[in-house]
Design a protein around this nucleic acid. Structure first.
Length: 644
RNA sequence: GCUGGCGUAGCUCAGUCGGUAGAGCAAUUGAUUCGUAAUCAAUAGGUCGGGUGUUCGAGUCACCUCGCCAGCUCCA
């Protein structure tokens, strides 16, 4: 009997005998995909290419260009790795091995920990398995048989996984040669499909992501459809490493972290220029958006932290000290201080919304293994603000903050994504209030047509939040901006305002940051621009380079002139050749170089070199100065062109 | 905190079998006055992260400790 197959791509249909393998169907439908097809979809259901088709169907074909195709490819690759590991290290127990961005990993519980040398062995065994081109066969077992199968093999993690599957779940397996793994699939038809992979690193990972469980050994790998793409990926990673803010921070003399203070960064003179420029921009934009600024103490009495709930909910992260026999805490957050300012006078509904910003220095004890350059430190300055408002103003205020953060991120050309984080296990207040707060945030996001994902259980202990994530040079994301709705602290601090009715009411509070922290933001900024900051942020905006000693006076005169215009200038009057000076200034990522020799001096001109564009020839000095002043005043991202 | 790896000059790194530490860049000094990515020469710089042990002898081996890197957990 024949079945009718309709190809979704071009809507053409063909007849095939019932039970034809998907692979053969592809040959008939789309010769061009014969070599690149990895996975199919039959009547909306993802299907292995080795499966047969039994009924009339609409089909789709996936290649490595499609996410399902890529995932299946990498997932099969992870099975190959697991097979290699079990061949080389019998007794190694298997946990899970999914596809991830750019590759895959597999978590193992080995008899003896793997070493980096083992990766080489595993890699070679994988090559063998790929060369053998074992077909992957799918089959199902009853729950009972499946449990028995893995219990006999001593695969305790698989037993646990099966036990947690829903009652009605089909328990499927994939087998290649002697290797069998519990797996929902889908998979490639055979191991020979794998063309390029590289085992990258060895790392610990808790079973099921909980630190209460045993730590397993995870092998990370990347894989691509061909060797060239793999090579390009590896080169891209190498390039990205050169943008690492920890490396650039040192090279550009911006900041560093010393052994004497793990997690407590040092900012050098050039790094302080970045910080101060960012702060100045921040103050300017916040003033425009109706914020006032406050400052609260770094050390405050224990009683305050008990009242705020931090002493009981955040103590592990707090540094404490004793003053005159009383306990004090170094603030991990700025909110309690802000609340004390609020309570120091009476408020009317007419005052709202109150928006109080604070560049607040906070200290938090982070686990030593979590520290990461400037991205994750133990002392940082939050560009915090606390907003006090009527319940009826929440949506407008939250929407306003979202727009403000968007404005700020766009200024730097950052792409970001938002997450809505909901009630964590450890929290203050009742669930009903939480759900209401979560709903309010979600409704606000929806009203702005914003794209976001939900991050369950990741809210602050006092309220749900909207987080803004930015990417570092390797694509890892870091939470920067955050908007946190808080019904708890106003309660705990008994905040009130006098309403229209003359009665006392409870205001609502919003905590928020835009940069997140100066430290993390500077790290992101450094990696984003690879140290080549726009001129308004560049520690040195102009470097003046005389060709010989004859021009030293002229160079000094130009420098003074630019400095008096508020620009940051250095003169490189060392006794070096011009090529050497240019090379160094380039390495320092100085946006503009002015080369002055006899010719320029005679004309009262300068020879301009623009970062990324090279030698621009002779230009008029006054017009250069005017244009640079403008560029910096407007905080433009792009450097100027030679001609206006 | 946990798993694995790594700590040698300011930076990047070499150092064999355990035999008393080396290069390039940077720095300093001198010469050179030069036109768009490295002028030449000389000099100086290290309790080999710290500690304890093994040994006639430790950068090298063992143990402890601190820090860093990747990841997990956690987070701005």
């Amino acid at each position: 009997m024949n079945i009718n197959i309709q190809y979704k791509k071009d809507n053409k249909s063909m007849e095939f005998p019932q039970g034809t393998k998907f692979l053969s169907i592809i040959q008939g439908l789309d010769q061009g995909l014969k070599k690149t097809a990895l996975l199919g979809k039959v009547n909306g259901k993802i299907t292995d290419l080795s499966a047969t088709v039994e009924e009339d169907a609409e089909v789709e074909i996936f290649t490595f260009e499609d996410e399902p195709g890529r995932d299946a490819y990498r997932h099969t690759c992870s099975h190959v790795m697991a097979q290699a590991v079990q061949r080389l290290f019998p007794g190694t127990k298997l946990a899970i091995g999914p596809a991830i961005t750019d590759g895959f990993y597999y978590d193992f519980d080995p008899v003896k920990p793997f070493t980096p040398e083992d990766l080489e062995l595993i890699s070679r065994e994988m090559e063998k398995i790929i060369k053998e081109n074992y077909p992957l066969e799918r089959f199902v077992m009853s729950r009972q048989d499946a449990l028995k199968f893995f219990e006999e093999k001593g695969e305790q993690y698989k037993v646990e996984l099966i036990s947690d599957l829903p009652e009605d779940a089909e328990i499927s397996f994939y087998k290649q040669a002697e290797f069998v793994d519990l797996c929902a699939g889908p998979h490639l038809p055979s191991t020979g499909y794998i063309k390029a992979f590289k085992l990258m690193s060895l790392a610990g990972a808790y079973w099921r992501g909980s630190e209460k469980n045993k730590m397993l050994q995870r092998i990370y790998a990347v894989s691509f459809f061909n060797k060239k793409d793999l090579q390009e990926y590896l080169e891209r990673i190498e390039e990205a490493k050169k943008r690492d803010h920890r490396k650039l921070g040192q090279e550009l003399k911006l900041f560093s972290i010393k052994d004497e203070g793990p997690g407590f960064p040092f900012f050098y003179p050039k790094g302080m220029i970045l910080r101060n420029e960012l702060s100045a921009y921040w103050r300017e934009v916040h003033k425009q958006w109706g914020y006032e600024e406050v400052m609260t103490p770094i050390i405050l009495n224990r009683e305050l932290w008990e009242r705020s709930g931090h002493w009981f909910n955040y103590k592990d992260n707090m540094y404490t000290t004793v003053i005159d026999d009383e306990d004090y805490a170094i603030k991990p957050m700025n909110c309690p201080g802000s609340l004390l300012i609020y309570n120091s006078e009476l408020h009317s509904y007419r005052d709202f919304p109150l928006r109080w910003g604070e560049m607040g220095i906070v200290h938090r004890h982070e686990l030593s293994g979590a520290l990461h350059g400037l991205m994750r430190v133990r002392c940082f300055t939050q560009d915090d603000a606390h907003l006090y408002m009527l319940p009826s103003q929440i949506k407008d205020e939250v929407a306003g903050v979202i727009k403000l953060i968007d404005t700020i991120y766009k200024k730097f050309g950052f792409a970001y994504h938002m997450e809505l984080s909901t009630m964590p296990e450890k929290h203050l207040g009742d669930e009903e209030t939480w759900r209401m707060a979560e709903d309010t945030l979600e409704e606000t996001l929806k009203s702005l047509n914003a794209e976001y994902t939900i991050n369950p259980g990741d809210g602050a202990f006092y309220g749900p939040k909207i987080d803004f994530h930015l990417k570092d040079s390797l694509g890892r994301t870091w939470q920067c901006g955050t908007i946190q709705l808080d019904f708890q602290l106003p309660e705990r601090f008994d905040l009130t305002y006098v309403g229209e009715d003359g009665q006392k009411h409870r205001p609502v509070m919003v905590h928020r940051t835009a940069f997140g922290s100066m430290e993390r933001f500077i790290a992101i900024l450094t990696e984003h621009f690879a140290g080549a900051f726009p001129s308004w942020l560049a520690p040195v905006q102009v470097k003046i380079m005389p060709i010989t000693e004859r021009q030293h006076k002229y160079a000094a005169f130009l420098a003074e002139d630019l400095k008096s215009a508020g620009l940051r200038v250095e003169v490189d009057d060392r006794n070096e050749k011009i090529g050497y000076k240019i090379r160094e200034a380039r390495n320092e990522r100085v946006p503009y170089m002015l080369v002055v020799g006899d010719k320029e001096q005679e004309q009262g001109a300068v020879s301009l070199w623009i970062r990324g564009k090279g030698d621009q020839g002779t230009v008029n000095f006054l017009s250069f100065k005017r244009r640079l002043k403008e560029e910096v005043a407007e905080r433009r991202l792009a450097l100027m062109e030679k001609d206006e």
